[in-house]
């Protein structure tokens, strides 16, 4: 026993503060959130204990998932995530591939692509709100006006004010901001591949395309997966960009995080917590398989 204590004691002591902090501020609060989400605390009076509240298990979840409004939010979230992911992966990969070949001024291009990431979503959101103005015709401004100037009038549209697919327009600034980051990930991936692989392929007479297609691309799988996870979880938590471009009450750009905010401002803590838990489950559905995958590959190595 003392020997075991001597072996496990010091490391355990060392990490115990972080374990305790995590236990209280992450898992403890998650539990408190889950608990609130299973009560019927829908008013301020119930939250302060002046009116009775009771435990209702999953009633809030059932009711919430059954409302058309929340289904609309979930549909918006899905659409936003798909467009955001596809856009950042496409542009990020394209730019990394272009910069992987010997290019002049590579550093300059790299910085240009990466710069948007330094801007906060809120700041760029304000500018994109002007660019994505939905006026068309004579009173057009922003991108619609630009389309008119270059004679592409047919491209004019009402952007994020389209009730069905408007949320996809908000993914445009998000793609603009994060593509550079994905590019950096892929570029690091390309550079991480030993030079010998390229040389070996060239010695074997592979064309440049064959070299990329059969030697380099397959080795980027783990990088691509990380990029999908990072961008995907950011997308699922989308809130600030939407708040900056649209408004919390705008139906066309509702996502669960916005619903959570509106419920909270209505003193409806139970539904707010329920939306939070649903978001957590959605993000977990993305992250947990990834973590399992990573641990398995680590072990097999």
């Amino acid at each position: 026993m003392p020997r075991q204590l001597r072996r496990w004691g010091p490391p355990l002591l060392l990490i115990s503060p972080s374990i305790i902090l995590m236990a209280v501020f992450v898992y403890g609060l998650l539990a408190a959130n889950a608990q609130t989400s299973m009560t019927d605390i829908h008013t301020a009076a119930q939250a302060t204990g002046r009116a009775p509240s009771s435990f209702v298990w999953f009633d809030n979840y059932v009711a919430l998932l059954g409302t058309e409004a929340f289904q609309h939010s979930l549909k918006n979230l899905l659409l936003y995530t798909v467009v955001f992911l596809a856009g950042t992966m496409f542009f990020g990969f394209l730019w990394a591939w272009l910069l992987d070949r010997p290019v002049r001024f590579e550093g300059v291009f790299r910085s240009i692509y990466l710069f948007p990431m330094a801007v906060s979503f809120v700041a760029s959101g304000v500018v994109w709100r002007w660019l994505l103005n939905s006026n068309q015709g004579e009173q057009a401004s922003g991108l619609n006006r630009l389309f008119q100037i270059v004679g592409l009038d047919f491209l004019q549209n009402n952007w994020w004010n389209n009730v069905d697919v408007g949320i996809a327009a908000i993914a445009i600034p998000a793609i603009w901001q994060l593509s550079g980051y994905v590019m950096a990930l892929f570029l690091a991936g390309f550079r991480g591949i030993p030079e010998e692989h390229r040389e070996a392929a060239r010695v074997d007479g592979a064309t440049e395309w064959q070299l990329y297609r059969h030697v380099l691309f397959p080795q980027l799988g783990p990088v691509a997966l990380s990029a999908v996870i990072i961008v995907g979880h950011m997308s699922l938590k989308a809130f600030d960009l939407i708040m900056a471009i649209s408004k919390p009450a705008n139906y066309q750009t509702k996502v669960p995080a916005i619903d959570m905010y509106v419920f909270k401002s209505s003193f409806d803590y139970a539904n707010s917590a329920a939306v939070g838990s649903i978001l957590l489950v959605i993000v977990a559905a993305l992250i947990i398989p990834y973590l399992i995958h990573i641990t398995r590959t680590e072990k097999s190595k």
Binding site: L132, N133, S134, N135, Q136, N161, I245
Partner: peptide, 8 residues
Amino acid sequence: YTNTDRDG
């Protein structure tokens, strides 16, 4: 009768 860019 209102402007189309109202929501922004």
